[in-house]
Write a protein that binds this DNA or RNA. Structure first.
Length: 255
DNA sequence: CGGGTTTGACCGGCGC
DNA sequence: GCGCCGGTCAAACCCG
């Protein structure tokens, strides 16, 4: 994707990591090329990360290119308008196209990241989620075991990078409805930012997708949502919204 | 009562 | 080695 514009390296006073990111033209392509492996301001290496100015599939464009959404993300409303061009796709591929970034392109350009996407989307992340299963030991010791032992990536192995992407949304509401259910598992004050960063995990029992939500320090009306991992299940809300349209399409396709 | 949120503590990685 | 910082855990709490 040559028409992507590289940005983000000149962010200096931002509480956000200094992600090199791409601004995707509007409307965004369904499959966006992964940015090169990004390095944050704290020196951490991350997997491919993109900052989109709108979520995938959104057509709810704000004049400035941001999603205009007081409460809701546009994902569910976007899809019906795309249908005329997509009637040959089956449901699963439609859903995956819209909601499960990163796209197959990843495999070509970022084989390692793509492999990890498979790893995380196919199975539980046993590293994090099974922390509480360590048993025995006293109260304090148990806690330490859970956190420092089985609960974290073992040894000195560097944390596996996962496919990540981010988008910015202009909204008063921090919690954007993207169709999935999320459980908050942490909140941290971020350096150089008045607004805390919130950590969410997908509540689906076999899914380990995480997301971080925080407001831009520069422009607090903008919410930056960073997704990590790939959902391994369909979006219930989207399925719900699309079902009547699918039925209609199936009916029309008979003629 | 079950599921979600809050919040203080803890850990690992990194820079100095 | 030490301190800082981001990320995570889990007990306590809240709410429908």
């Amino acid at each position: 994707m040559e028409n992507l514009q590289l940005q983000g390296d000149d962010h200096d006073d931002e509480a956000l990591p200094h992600f090199p990111y791409f601004v995707v033209p509007s409307p965004p392509p369904l499959a966006v090329a992964p940015a090169a492996s990004a390095t944050t301001s704290d020196g951490h290496q991350h997997g491919p990360l993109e900052v989109l100015e709108q979520p995938p599939c959104s057509n709810n464009l704000h004049p400035d290119g941001l999603v205009d959404g007081p409460d809701q993300l546009a994902a569910t409303t976007a899809v019906p308008m795309m249908l005329p061009a997509m009637t040959s796709l089956d449901w699963q591929s439609l859903l995956q196209t819209c909601l499960q970034v990163p796209p197959p392109v990843l495999e070509q350009q970022q084989p390692a990241a793509a492999a990890q996407a498979d790893q995380y989307s196919g199975e539980n992340d046993h590293g994090d989620l099974q922390a509480a299963e360590s048993s025995g030991a006293g109260n304090k010791e148990k806690q330490v075991m859970a956190k420092g032992g089985a609960g974290r990536p073992s040894g000195t192995k560097k944390k596996a990078s996962r496919p990540r992407f981010a988008f910015q949304t202009r909204s008063d509401n921090d919690i954007l409805d993207d169709g999935y259910r999320w459980r908050k598992y942490g909140q941290k004050a971020v350096k150089n930012s008045k607004h805390p960063r919130s950590y969410y995990r997908c509540t689906h029992h076999t899914c380990n997708v995480k997301k971080q939500v925080q407001r831009l320090a520069k422009d607090t009306s903008i919410v930056v949502t960073t997704y990590e991992g790939v959902h391994n299940h369909p979006c219930e809300k989207l399925m719900e919204a699309l079902t009547p349209i699918l039925k209609q399409l199936q009916f029309l396709s008979q003629f």
